[in-house]
Simulated scan of single mutants.
Amino acid sequence: MIFSSIWCGFSACTSRSCVLVTLGFFRFALGVGIGGDYPLSATIMSEFANRHTRGAFIAAVFSMQGFGILVSSAVTMAVCVVFDRATGADPVGETPQEADLAWRLILVLAAVPAGLTFYWRMMMPETARFTALVEKNVEQAVRDMQGVLAVSLAQIAEEEEETLSPNPASYPLLSGEFLHRHGRDLFACAAAWFLVDVVFYSINLFQSNIYSHYLPKHHMSVFEEAFHVAKLQVIIAVCSTIPGYFAAVYLIDRTGRVKIQLTGFFIMALGLLAIGIPYKNFWRNTTNMGFMVLYSLTFFFANLGPNTTTTFIVPAELFPARFRATCHGISGAAGKLGAVVGSVGFLRASTTGEGMAAALVILGGICVVGMAVTYLLTPETMGRSLEENE
C-alpha cells in the first residue's frame, strides 16, 4: 500500500493513454495491498471482541472509511487551492502543466496513512484465536491476549462454552466438507457483496453527472472545478456517509445484521426508484435539493446497512479461524467483480439522461435482489460465538 501509493504518483508519461496504462498497473498493485488489509482489519477486530459488542467494534473500524473520504477530499481541496493561487491559471485557457503534478501529489500523500497503519499493525501480536486454533500455541495466545487487553485470562473468558475449541476445523478450504459446512454462507456473503458493490460503485460513477448541476456556472480553472467537486463530496460525507456509519455502530448489536441489511437494501431501492423513474422529466436538468436529499439517503442507508454488514461484519463472523480472512477475501473479490460490472455496465448510461433513468431503475431492482439474498441466505450472527464456527 505504501509503495503503490508512491508509484501511482510517479506513473510514467504525461500523455493520456500512456499514463493510464502505468497508473492502472500501480493501482492494481495497490489493490493487492488493500485486498490483503481489508479482510485482516475486520478479522482482527472480530477476534479481539466479545460476542455482545463485536458488531459495534467492527462497524466502528469500518466507519473510519467515512473519515478517510473526508480527509481525502480535504487534501484535494488544499492542494487545489495552493496550485490555483501559485499558477494563476486562466479559467478559459488550456489546462496548466502544473495540473499533472497536482493529481500525482494527491495520490502520493496516501502513503502517509498507509505508513502509519503499517507501523501500528507491526506492533500488534497475532490474534489469540489464530495462534491457538491454527498455530496450536495456546500459551502464546493467552500471553498475547493478556498483553493486548491488559487483563487476566479469567476476565477475558466470556462464558464457559466460549473457551477455545480443542478440535478446530481440520479440513481444507477446497473440500466437500468445507462446502457442506460453509458453502452456503460463503455464497451468501459473496453474492450480497457483489450486489451492493454493483450499486455502490455505479452511483459513485454517476457523481460527475450529478455534481455538474450543483457546480458554479461561470468558467472555472481545472483546480477550481476539482475544489468544488471535492467540497460537494465533503458535504455528502458529513451529512450522509459518516452518519450512516455511526448509525450502524449504534444499531448493529441491537437490531441484528440481517434486519439492518434488509432495511438498507429496501430504502436504497426506494431512493433509486424515486430518482430514476421520473429522472427524465423531473430531475434531469434541475438543482432541486430534493434530488440531492434522495441521493444522500441512498448513501446513508447503504452505509447503515449492506455496505457495512456485507463488506465487513458478516464475513468476519461466519467462518472458522482457519478460513476467516480467506473467506472474507473471497467475498471481497466477488464484491470488486460487482464494482467492475457496475462501472463498465453503467458507464455509457451515465452520459445521457435516458440512460441514467434506466440505470437508476435497474440499480433499484438490484437492491431488491439483494433483499432476497439477505432474507433467504444470510444467517444472523448477532450474539453468536466465533467458536461455534469451529
Rank of each mutant, 00 (worst) to 15 (best):
I2Y: 02
I2H: 05
F3L: 06
F3Y: 06
S4P: 12
S5R: 06
A12K: 03
S15P: 01
S17E: 02
V21E: 05
F25V: 12
F26V: 09
I34W: 02
G35C: 08
G36Y: 09
P39H: 11
L40Y: 13
S41A: 07
S41D: 03
A42C: 13
S46A: 14
I69Q: 14
S73M: 04
A74D: 02
V75F: 03
V75Y: 10
M77R: 10
C80E: 01
D90H: 05
P91N: 03
G93L: 01
E94A: 01
E94I: 01
P96F: 00
Q97I: 00
E98S: 09
A102E: 00
A102G: 10
W103N: 00
R104I: 08
L109V: 08
L109I: 02
L109C: 08
P113V: 13
L116D: 10
W120A: 11
R121H: 11
R121M: 07
R121A: 12
E126L: 12
T127M: 09
T127D: 05
A128P: 12
L133K: 08
N137S: 00
Q140G: 02
Q140E: 00
V142W: 01
V142E: 02
M145Y: 04
Q146H: 00
L149T: 11
A150D: 04
A154F: 05
A154C: 07
Q155Y: 06
E162M: 09
P166F: 07
P166C: 09
P168R: 02
A169F: 01
S170M: 12
L173Q: 07
L179N: 05
R181H: 12
R184C: 14
A192M: 13
A192F: 01
A192T: 14
V196H: 12
F200N: 09
I203P: 13
I203Y: 11
N204V: 12
F206G: 04
Q207N: 14
P216D: 04
H219W: 03
F223G: 07
E224G: 09
H228K: 09
V229D: 02
A230R: 01
V234L: 03
I235V: 02
I236V: 11
A237W: 08
C239I: 06
S240I: 04
F246K: 15
F246D: 09
A248L: 04
I252K: 06
D253R: 15
F265G: 01
F265K: 00
G271R: 05
L272Y: 03
A274L: 12
F282D: 13
R284N: 12
N285S: 12
M289I: 11
M292K: 06
M292Y: 08
Y295S: 13
L297M: 13
F299S: 10
F301P: 10
G305L: 05
P306R: 15
T309H: 01
T310F: 01
T311M: 07
V314Q: 10
R322W: 03
F323H: 02
S331V: 05
A334W: 07
G335D: 08
L337M: 05
G338L: 06
F346Y: 03
A349R: 12
G353M: 09
G353D: 14
A359F: 00
V361A: 13
I362T: 08
V369M: 10
G370F: 02
A372S: 15
T378V: 09
P379T: 06
T381A: 07
T381Y: 05
S385Q: 13
S385K: 09
L386E: 11
E387S: 07
E390S: 10
